[in-house]
Amino acid sequence: MRKSSTTSLPSLSVRIDLNTDGRIGPGKIQLLENIRACGSISAAGRAMDMSYKRAWDLVDEINRVCGRAAVDRQAGGKNGGGAVLTPFGLSLVARYRKIEHSAESAARKELLALQSDMGVRRKP
């Protein structure tokens, strides 16, 4: 889960183990969101302080473990290349964020109890 700068509440991180040899988690979803925002894999990687090769490898891994393309790469040329999320990629991000929100909501009471047990106080 995305950590808030105004609270010390313990947070939850969601990773989805797929029935293949892969998983989808917050880093890959953030990369997809950055590709959507930036319009390219290289710019998305730079936004995450990630090498171009690492970003490409993660996109290839996402496509492989999902069994279908989440990112459509557009070849360079006169106006340069780019990348966009496919309809499946958009759905993947939306579903992941819904699962993440549901998990956070379901765990909130226990996270607050853990915070109390640890003696952690909310930041002002």
Rank of each mutant, 00 (worst) to 15 (best):
T20G: 12
C66Q: 15
G77A: 04
I29N: 05
K98L: 14
R46M: 03
R95E: 15
S8C: 06
N63P: 10
S42V: 13
R97K: 15
I62K: 09
H101R: 15
A70Q: 08
R54P: 03
M118R: 14
R108W: 05
M1C: 00
G67L: 10
I16W: 01
G119F: 07
L92E: 11
R68A: 12
L112H: 02
S116C: 00
L18Q: 01
K28W: 07
S8E: 07
D117M: 04
R73D: 02
G22Y: 06
A37I: 03
P124E: 09
L9C: 03
S13M: 12
N19C: 04
K109H: 12
G25T: 11
G77I: 09
A94Y: 02
G119N: 05
G76N: 01
E61M: 08
Y52A: 10
G67P: 07
R95H: 12
S11L: 01
G76H: 02
K109T: 10
G80I: 00
I29C: 02
S5D: 15
A103K: 06
A107K: 11
G39V: 09
G89M: 02
L92Q: 09
K109P: 13
V71S: 09
R122D: 15
A37H: 10
L9P: 06
N34D: 10
Q115P: 06
T86M: 01
P10E: 03
G27Y: 09
A69N: 07
M50V: 03
